[in-house]
Design a binder for these strands. Structure first.
Length: 569
RNA sequence: GGUCCCUUCGUCUAGUGGUCUAGGACACUGCCCUUUCACGGCGGCAACACGGGUUCGAACCCCGUAGGGAUCACCA
């Protein structure tokens, strides 16, 4: 990357617009609706993100949950700000009043905190451009709306929704793009009074150009050209004067000094109208970058929180969900059915994922450094990410790969950090008593023994038999190792005798003892060890047998063998 | 249906005209290691959507076709 050259070229572009000649020409002979306001301002060329102070934003609406796709968008925004010493702003899009914003906002902020994505301005931290809730910025929007009205870029319209709907359907049936003929547009105060006398309510619409084209220079997509005529006269204010999303968004982006609007590609079709609003208001345009959306597992459609049933048909997705449910159930997690879903970040936090692993995986959805390196520390993410290496095509969410990333990251953790993460789960399951040294030591032993069999903190549930006696017995393993070999019970009985005489019950001591037993009996270790495992853990597999026995403890081991023998006969 | 976007292994991707008999990762899979289950090591399977150009030469450039997707609200 050549920062200085990039900087030069972006300055050159700013001084001498080269791209949108068509738009300028068309603007000149447009004649009717608007005067010379419309002159697209060229955007910075690629790479320019490295050399300017960047202000980005993520604008969630308070829905109560954080979508994985949204997190990726936020991540890119956050990185862009961090790598340039710029600011990352959180703005709350709550123009659609009526819900409990505060309650629905908390889970989102918590999600950000958990992920370690801090915001420089926004809820709770404030900032110089506040307030950061759209519901509290009405005056600014009202001002913008009246300016738009005055300059003729917007008009009052008295169409009824169903009247417009009829028109739209007719256009659609004839295969034409719907173009509103503005038949209920108020040209003057007299019109307004007349319509109001008819009992009509007036909204404010954008008076979109009917010819020429809008050129969007997108950092990821390149040049996107849209005919103005294909744009609607979008409503920007309701009858009660309250603003709609596009208006509010553009006004705020400008007021906040947002330099880069980085958002999901589904916003691309919205961009022309936002460009229109911004330019009508005389704003300098931000640089746009439209990210490919995150697609569903094994598919190409946009990942949606609402299609759980469909995703559950995907093996890997179903596995993750099953794992999550098992952890939630065993650890008595109070999960909300509505948010306990692998499409939402809450899920991962609840079952003991590492935020860095999630972020690392998400960053690779649509972005790559060189096709070789895939693992990045947070510092590397900030250092190495560039928008010009973001792909254009949607990337499908792969739960198996995410889990693999999580497993690797989790196993790279130092033992004490692992223990710290796992402990809450073990405590919640009722297996470990917090503050009790013996109990905590046992947990540490189990975690050390389990090693990389623990992929996430919640995986501790697989080792319930280390802590309690009411574990499940795997029927297949029982059949194979206890029932089928005719001598298993007999051997187990003898082994129990042998073990009962042991003074020490450390892993090493037990190993010696069991191996000595095998020698005495002239059998291979393999002939007893499987039966021993099933008898003492009920499981077909697990970590080292002798570590397992040591952790369970002499008394319990003997009891369990005894019980197995009793049940078998 | 209109508008816009996209198209390399099952998935994420590398690739910017010759180094591509297309590289890496996840998944799947074979072997080795091993008392089990994992880890690990060494292998394997597997892709340039299609058709035309341009060129000595195309995954890469151009044009079409097909397919997929997003979006078309007084939601955000």
């Amino acid at each position: 990357m050549l920062p200085s050259a990039d900087f030069e070229s972006s300055k050159r572009h700013a001084a001498r617009p080269s791209l949108p000649m068509a738009a300028i020409a068309n603007g000149a002979d447009r004649g009717d609706c608007v005067d010379q306001w419309f002159r697209p301002i060229p955007l910075s060329p690629l790479h320019s993100t490295r050399c300017h102070m960047i202000r980005t934003r993520f604008a969630p609406s308070p829905t109560g949950y954080l979508h994985i796709g949204g997190v990726r968008t936020a991540l890119f925004n956050w990185i862009l700000a961090r790598q340039t010493g710029g600011q990352f702003i959180l703005r709350i899009d709550d123009t659609d009043a009526g819900r409990n914003v505060e309650a629905a906002l908390q889970p989102i902020l918590e999600g950000f905190r958990w992920l370690g994505m801090d915001w420089d301005e926004g809820p709770e931290v404030g900032g110089p451009h506040g307030p950061y809730f759209q519901s509290q910025r009405s005056e600014m929007y009202a001002d913008a709306i009246s300016r738009l009205l005055e300059s003729g870029h917007a008009y009052r319209d008295f169409a009824k929704p169903d009247e417009l709907q009829t028109l739209r359907e007719a256009a659609r049936e004839s295969g034409q793009a719907f173009v509103y003929d503005r038949r209920w547009m108020a040209n003057d105060e007299a019109d307004v009074e007349k319509y109001q006398a008819e009992g009509r309510e007036g909204v404010v619409r954008l008076k979109m150009p009917r010819d020429g084209q809008c050129v969007i220079n997108d950092l990821i997509r390149g040049e996107v050209v849209v005919e103005w005529a294909s744009e609607q006269d979008h409503v920007i204010a309701r009858a009660d004067g309250s603003p709609l999303y596009h208006l509010a968004s553009v006004v705020d982006d400008h007021a906040f000094g947002i330099t880069h609007v980085v958002r999901a590609a589904e916003h691309l079709p919205n961009t022309p109208r936002q460009v229109f609003i911004a330019q009508s208001l005389g704003y300098e345009l931000p640089t746009y970058a439209h990210l490919p959306y995150v697609a569903e597992p094994g598919g190409t459609a946009k990942l949606s929180k609402r299609k759980l049933d469909k995703y559950l048909k995907n093996r890997d997705f179903a596995n993750l969900m099953t794992r999550g449910k098992a952890i939630a159930e065993r650890c008595a997690l109070t999960t909300d059915d509505d948010t306990f879903n692998p499409v939402l970040v809450d899920f991962y936090r609840e079952i003991g994922f590492l935020p860095d692993a999630l972020l690392n995986y998400l960053m690779l959805l649509g972005w790559s450094l060189d096709g070789e390196q895939e693992k990045f520390t947070r510092e590397e993410m900030i250092k190495l990410f560039t928008l010009d290496r973001v792909n254009k095509a949607p990337a499908s969410f792969d739960p198996a790969k995410l889990t693999a990333f999580q497993a690797d990251a989790f196993n790279a953790l130092p033992q004490d950090v692992k223990v710290g993460m796992v402990k809450p789960f073990a405590v919640a399951a009722g297996w470990v008593e917090s503050g009790n040294d013996e109990s905590e030591q046992k947990l540490a032993d189990v975690i050390a023994g389990a090693g990389d069999r623990l992929k996430m903190a919640g995986d501790i549930i697989d080792f319930d038999y280390c802590f309690v006696d009411d574990y499940e017995i795997n029927p297949k393993a029982y059949q194979k190792r206890i029932v089928k070999p005719g001598n298993a019970i007999e051997l187990l009985g003898k082994l129990r005798e042998h073990l009962s005489g042991a003074d020490e019950f450390s892993a090493d001591a037990v190993e010696k003892s069991v191996k000595g037993f095998c020698e005495d009996q002239s059998i291979g270790l393999g002939e007893i060890i499987h039966a021993l495992r099933v008898a003492t853990t009920g499981a077909a597999g697990g970590f080292g047998m002798f570590e397992t026995l040591a952790v369970i403890g002499k008394e319990r081991v003997l009891q369990r063998i005894e019980k197995t023998i009793a049940n078998a006969s």
